[in-house]
Computed example of a mutant assay.
Amino acid sequence: MEQESRLAGTVRPGGRTARVRAAVLEATRDELVEHGFHGLTMDQVAARAGVGKTTVYRRWGSRAGLVTDLMIELAEQSSPHADTGSIEDDLLANAMAVVGAVTDHRLGATFQAVIAAGTSDAQAVQALRAFYLRRIEEWAKVVDLAVKRGELPEGTDGMEVIRAISAPLYYRLLVTKEPVDQGVARSAALRTLAAARAGAFVPLPA
């Protein structure tokens, strides 16, 4: 995602430029929530942000550029991993963080709009991948800490553990359209923990 972070508009400037970026990204998020990716237009984002259209076109180039920068910003704003000293509590915290995000009116709608965009836009896919990779890498640290404490087997793949917690939540959210609540999140975390303790996430020898 290195090349994506070099898109115009993704550098963190100060002063008026920072205020413009903040206003444009907030407007982008509002437009995504209300109209989805395919209803997102550069002109409407500019109008909503109170910014000249030429500024938006020059700095972000396309709606995909806007979405990419928005996902970068959301990743940078997201909270660090839990550190309770217990892998069970840490994984439960991860599951609750995911369900809190996907069920939030604005944040959840933003994710769903960008995920939908990923079905037809390669740049949206890269933006999503970068966002989730960053979050998975952050939370995988709790697994590494648990291995050091002796709570999980040596060699446990932390990133796969975190993916395994989120997967059933996103499946319900996007595929079956079933409710995603704290009970579902808790079950996902505890099942994943049981599998991890049994060594299911230790890679097999080549």
Rank of each mutant, 00 (worst) to 15 (best):
D104N: 10
G61W: 04
H105D: 10
L40N: 03
V24P: 01
D121V: 13
D69E: 12
H35L: 01
T119P: 00
G65D: 10
G61H: 08
R129W: 08
T68G: 15
T119D: 12
R106L: 00
T55Q: 11
E26S: 04
D43V: 14
S86W: 05
M96A: 15
V45T: 10
A23D: 05
D104S: 07
R16H: 13
T17W: 03
G36R: 06
A64Q: 13
T119R: 14
S86E: 12
I72R: 15
T28V: 03
L128N: 15
S86V: 07
R63T: 15
S78D: 13
Y132M: 12
V67N: 05
L74W: 04
V67K: 05
A18P: 02
Q44M: 08
D30A: 11
V33G: 01
G85A: 06
D121N: 15
V125P: 00
R48C: 04
E31N: 05
L70T: 12
A23W: 02
L133C: 07
I87N: 06
A82W: 01
T54R: 10
P80Q: 09
V45G: 06
G65V: 09
H35G: 02
A93G: 13
A122C: 03
V56A: 04
E138L: 04
R29F: 00
R58P: 00
L128Q: 14
V45C: 05
R63I: 11
F131W: 13
N94G: 11
I87A: 08
A116N: 09
T28K: 01
L66P: 07
V114S: 05
S120C: 07
S62C: 09
R16P: 01
T28C: 02
R134S: 14
R16M: 10
I136T: 12
E76V: 08
V33L: 02
G50A: 06
V51K: 03
A64V: 09
G100M: 08
F111K: 01
A127W: 07
T54D: 11
L92A: 12
H81L: 00
Q112R: 05
E73H: 14
A97C: 07
V125N: 10
A22K: 03
W60Y: 15
R19D: 07
A47V: 11
I87H: 07
T103W: 09
T103D: 09
M71S: 11
P80M: 07
Y57P: 01
T17L: 09
L25S: 03
T103Y: 08
G100R: 08
A27I: 01
L92V: 15
V45D: 04
L70G: 11
G36L: 00
V24Q: 02
T103K: 11
R16V: 14
Q77H: 14
G52Y: 06
A18E: 07
R129C: 04
L70S: 10
P80W: 09
D69N: 15
A117I: 01
L74F: 08
T54G: 06
A117N: 03
A18C: 03
I115V: 14
V98N: 08
Y132G: 10
L74N: 07
V98L: 12
V114Q: 04
Q77A: 15
Y57F: 12
A122D: 15
V98S: 05
V125C: 13
E137C: 05
F37T: 01
G65F: 06
D90C: 06
R63C: 11
S78P: 02
